[in-house]
Amino acid sequence: MSVVLNSGEISRALRRISHEILEKNHGSENLLLLGIPTRGAYLSRRIAGAISEIEKTELESGTLDITMYRDDLRLKAPRTLLPTSIPGGSIDGKDVVLIDDVFYSGRTIRAALDALNELGRPKSVQLAVLIDRGHRELPIRADFVGKNIPTAKEESVRVHLTEIDSLDEVLIEGRSQ
């Protein structure tokens, strides 16, 4: 088990992503940040906090649960539903930024796009992730990446956040030394 990002690196990465989101969208007026629970929701809240600080505004962050739209539901026991909350109530016409912790096969994001499609018609959808570990199975890419970490499929990437795990760090497990 090795640490690939420590607490300081995580907060610098999130700060950089916040700046990049602002740069690409020319400010925060039309932004809607939606974190994918569990950990994406916490990351989204942190990025919203950073953007609010930089822009001197109050940017809220929402959550988008994608459980009902997964393509692997039939392979596992039913999963508990997690909260969906859309600040302002609507995604129509917004520049939506989806936020997740680890970007892997791309299937989570495909499900998220389906979920968004049911909710309305955003102006654009962008994707921010803390870790991109490769091995995409679908033609989906991220707009904002905290860190690219090449991995083997046997390895697993664990993101720990203080909100639920007592400290901030990103680990890789199962890497042969």
Binding site: D65, M68, Y69, L73, T80, L81, L82, P83, T84, I86, G89, S90, D114, E118, L119, G120
Partner: peptide, 20 residues
Amino acid sequence: LDTASELARLSEGAVKKFPT
């Protein structure tokens, strides 16, 4: 009950049907 309350909240919004 928790699952039902999440589904109730979603059904109140724009989403009326899920592909699940």
